[in-house]
């Protein structure tokens, strides 16, 4: 349900499995380890790539995945999340892939299901501003594909970190695996006290980094007036600023990109940019995560 609480061997197991799946996808030899299993995706907040990626991952492993549509369901009639989940489980769902706008929603639902004796594995596909574990895993995976390992490497995360579940999960994952993480951004977007060096000066913050991970400006979550107008942000903190991205650094963004704000078209086409790789890499990573949720013989460290 979160990267927090997973130790390095647990992360390693998922990542190694993902690397193996990627090879199998290349050679067309994916083993349907989840054949006949029934997964339900419960997305109560908009998503394109995460949901598609989970659905593709489930199907590649032979599982059936049903999409629960919040807008046409009884949830819009006021049915509670717990009631809805119990209904899905009664209908045969063996695993829930869940996205929710509230931080802590998967843990809250899990507690309710445990209390009522209907617990099934819940895979967190993003909860509020809390965590987005599979995004962090696929980002680490993407870095490993390019850099070999993340251990000892420096990753600068730049942008609206305070409100980013991606940043939170990625920071924990990279830290657990021995990478050096920096938080870079204007004062309204980053904060001290999280055990990670903070840089308000973007040039200084990205200097010498092996990878720069840009974050989406969360206009849908800030609620109030934007701190910096997009023009100012672009001038100071975007990939198009001269000298911001070190020459050999990988350029990442979890998407969706605000084109022309965090990254412009030219940077997106740069050979160092792995934004589309990140999307593609979501599938083998989520295959591994679904197996971890559903397979008894998953060798937990």
């Amino acid at each position: 349900m979160g990267i927090e609480g997973l130790n390095a061997p647990s992360l390693r197991l998922i990542l190694d499995r993902a690397h193996a799946h990627a090879d199998d996808i290349q050679t067309g030899s994916v083993e349907p380890t989840l054949a006949g299993r029934f997964i339900c995706s419960l997305f109560l907040e908009d998503s394109t790539r995460t949901r598609l990626s989970f659905e593709t991952a489930a199907r590649r492993l032979g599982a059936e995945i049903i999409r629960f549509d919040a807008s046409t369901s009884s949830l819009s009639k006021g049915e509670s999340l717990l009631d809805t989940a119990q209904t899905l489980i009664a209908g045969g769902a063996e695993c829930l892939v869940m996205r929710h706008a509230s931080s802590g929603a998967p843990a809250h639902l899990n507690a309710g299901l445990v209390r009522t004796g209907h617990a099934v594995p819940i895979v967190n596909a993003g909860d509020g501003m809390h965590e987005h574990p599979t995004q962090a895993l696929l980002d680490v995976y993407t870095l490993e594909r390019r850099l070999g390992t993340v251990e000892g490497k420096t990753v600068a995360i730049i942008g609206d970190i305070n409100r980013s579940r991606v940043a939170r999960s990625l920071t924990i994952a990279l830290g657990t695996l021995g990478a050096h993480v920096r938080h870079v951004g204007p004062r309204a977007f980053v904060r001290e006290g999280l055990g990670v060096p903070v840089f308000n000066d973007p040039i200084e913050g990205t200097r010498g980094a092996d990878a720069v991970c840009f974050l989406r400006i969360q206009t849908e979550r800030t609620g109030r007036a934007a701190y910096l107008p997009n023009t100012a942000f672009r001038a100071l903190y975007s990939g198009s600023r001269e000298g911001l991205i070190p020459e050999n650094a990988i350029i990442m963004h979890p998407g969706p990109v605000n084109r022309g704000v965090e990254l412009d078209a030219k940077t997106l086409e740069d050979p160092r940019c792995v934004v589309l790789d990140q999307v593609a890499n979501g599938v083998p990573v989520r295959m591994a995560v679904l197996e971890r949720a559903l397979l008894d013989e998953w060798g937990e460290a």
């Binding site: 927090e4 931080s103 802590g104 909860d127 509020g128 501003m129 809390h130 965590e131 305070n162 579940r165 939170r168 904060r191 006290g193 999280l194």
Partner: peptide, 11 residues
């Protein structure tokens, strides 16, 4: 508004 809120992803 402290580190604990940040850890939980709560405003």
């Amino acid at each position: 508004d402290g580190p604990h809120a940040h850890r939980l992803g709560l405003p």
